[in-house]
């Protein structure tokens, strides 16, 4: 019966009611929510991709030169230790208040996880497999692309999942420089005591993290058909 009088009644996200869960809010501010989600996904995907693009050569380098390995691991762990709210400001003098600041910061965090999982994945390839491939006449590049990387994939994908999920969560902190995707809505929700906005954005963050995680699991299953056959 209140629905009929909706024009006069305050909606569930009005100042007076301020409900946590409010579908009216989702309907009325749809565009805002979609834009924030797109920005969130965009920042996450670009950051993880950039992290992977840097982690790959670093991991190969670390494997080739064991002396460098501990240095690379120490530096990346050091970066990981720095809180995100401190890392973004430290990048601002170089990149300004832009999405680039957030992307570089998040890529650095993803890098730490990815370098480690790449190294561990490559290390998990059995030596005799490597030897047989060499015996079959595989060169270094072919050995890496056709034998080592496919076998390392399960461990690498595990790292990629961890990196993606934590990047989705960390993107919210980007609201410090106004590029935080859903984090911008969370920040606004806190400042204006807007419960529906705050709750919807928080929930979407978690849903997004699990959705991307599930997507990566699917990708992994498609890329490694042999693991399915072995289990069945």
């Amino acid at each position: 019966m209140t629905l009929l009088g909706a024009a006069d009644d305050p909606s569930c996200y009005s100042r007076l009611v301020n409900d946590w869960v409010c579908l009216d809010y989702v309907g009325d501010r749809q565009q805002e929510i979609v834009d924030a989600t797109i920005q969130h996904v965009g920042i996450t995907v670009v950051s993880v991709a950039l992290g992977l693009a840097i982690a790959f050569p670093l991991a190969l380098l670390a494997r080739r030169l064991p002396r460098l390995e501990s240095a690379i691991l120490a530096v990346t762990t050091g970066i990981y230790t720095v809180p995100s709210l401190a890392l973004f400001p430290l990048l601002v003098p170089f990149t300004g208040l832009t999405a680039t600041t957030v992307v570089i910061g998040l890529a650095l965090y993803a890098l730490t996880i990815l370098v480690r999982s790449l190294l561990e994945g490559l290390r998990s390839v059995p030596d005799d497999v490597r030897e047989s491939a060499t015996g079959l006449g595989y060169g270094r590049g072919q050995l890496l692309l056709r034998v080592e990387l496919p076998l390392a994939l399960p461990v690498v994908m595990a790292g990629l999942r961890v990196a993606t999920v934590s990047t989705v969560a960390l993107t919210t902190v980007g609201s410090l420089v106004a590029y935080g995707g859903l984090g911008n809505l969370i920040k606004d929700g806190v400042l204006t005591n807007f419960r529906a906005e705050l709750f919807t954005a928080s929930l979407l963050c978690v849903v997004l993290a699990f959705a991307l995680d599930a997507l990566l699991v699917l990708v992994q299953r498609m890329l490694t058909p042999w693991t399915r056959g072995a289990r069945a």
Partner: peptide
């Protein structure tokens, strides 16, 4: 651990504060 990673610190803090 996986669940904890997926929940943004900022979001949880914001919810607790509001």
């Amino acid at each position: 651990s996986n669940v904890g990673r997926a929940i943004p610190t900022f979001a949880l803090l914001a919810l607790l504060v509001v």
